[in-house]
């Protein structure tokens, strides 16, 4: 039984000569929401992008260390990144639905894995849209262009698109930074609900958001792990004075 637990050991990452992550060792609990916080440029997004090997797309990126998911090191050379990204989905900062219909967006993942049967696809699409709390809003316009949806709906569509391939882990890179408070609240509710089924790793600039939705919080500073622990502890009784200064808004 996979637990969705991620063990990170001595993870370092550099782009060219710029070292972005320094020797990070950390365990992300399965079926939980872990928030990664830290000032801009502290390596939050890079850490996230190591977890599904999106760093492979950057020509001069060098990643070392280990990231163990389900007992295997996903950084090893033989790792099939296509399989990895099916297990580890990702939602980006700005909603980025494909310029196609709502249906085709959600069906994209299953289709590239060879699912063709219409009824099966219909079922997967509906399930994913329900999972992203979007079904009721779009059930009558599944074939409308995805770009005609509102920003918040587009972001939930992107979440549905990930859910359609049934990942164990969902990486979210500041998913609400382009959304208004009402749309943000919906996404946060959604994240809270998703925790039952999968591991959520959430990068956020918004400390209140981290406090509201996460079980665990990781604080990065200049590419180093300063502190990780239960969210309540990090926000009220941080061990490191830098963490305390950051979460109380004294810098960052």
């Amino acid at each position: 039984m996979d637990t969705g637990k991620i063990e990170i050991a001595s993870l370092s990452c550099a782009f060219g000569s710029r070292q972005v992550l320094h020797d990070i060792t950390l365990t992300l609990a399965g079926r939980c929401v872990t928030a990664i916080i830290g000032p801009s440029g502290s390596g939050k997004s890079t850490l996230l992008r190591c977890l599904n090997r999106m760093t492979d797309l950057v020509p001069d990126a060098r990643v070392s260390g280990k990231i163990i998911l389900d007992g295997t090191d996903i950084l090893r050379r033989e790792q099939d990144v296509v399989q990895l990204r099916q297990k580890v989905g990702m939602v980006f900062q700005k909603p980025n639905p494909f310029p196609r219909s709502v249906y085709d967006n959600v069906a994209y993942g299953p289709r590239i894995r060879g699912l063709r049967r219409r009824r099966e696809l219909d079922r997967v699409v509906e399930e994913a849209l329900r999972g992203a709390a979007l079904w009721e809003e779009v059930r009558d316009r599944l074939h409308a262009p995805a770009l005609s949806l509102s920003g918040g709906q587009q972001q939930r569509l992107c979440i549905a698109r990930c859910l359609a391939v049934r990942p164990q882990v969902l990486l979210m890179d500041e998913p609400c930074s382009a959304l208004d408070p009402a749309a943000t609240a919906k996404i946060e509710d959604l994240i809270t609900g998703l925790r039952r089924e999968l591991t959520v790793v959430l990068v956020t600039h918004n400390l209140q958001q981290a406090a509201r939705v996460s079980d665990h919080t990781v604080f990065l500073l200049d590419g180093e792990l300063v502190e990780a622990g239960e969210t309540a502890t990090i926000f009220t009784r941080a061990r490191d004075p830098r963490t305390d200064a950051y979460v109380t808004g004294r810098f960052g």
């Binding site: 999106m54 797309l57 399989q83 990895l84 980006f92 700005k94 980025n96 310029p99 994209y108 990930c162």
Partner: peptide, 27 residues
């Protein structure tokens, strides 16, 4: 073709060939 669309496709587990054929070229 916006980087965000390529990334979205790669993040869904599309191979390079699939990203190009089903995604980048149509766009």
């Amino acid at each position: 073709v916006p980087v965000a669309y390529r990334e979205a496709a790669y993040a869904l587990g599309a191979s390079r060939r699939q990203v190009i054929l089903t995604h980048v070229l149509p766009y």
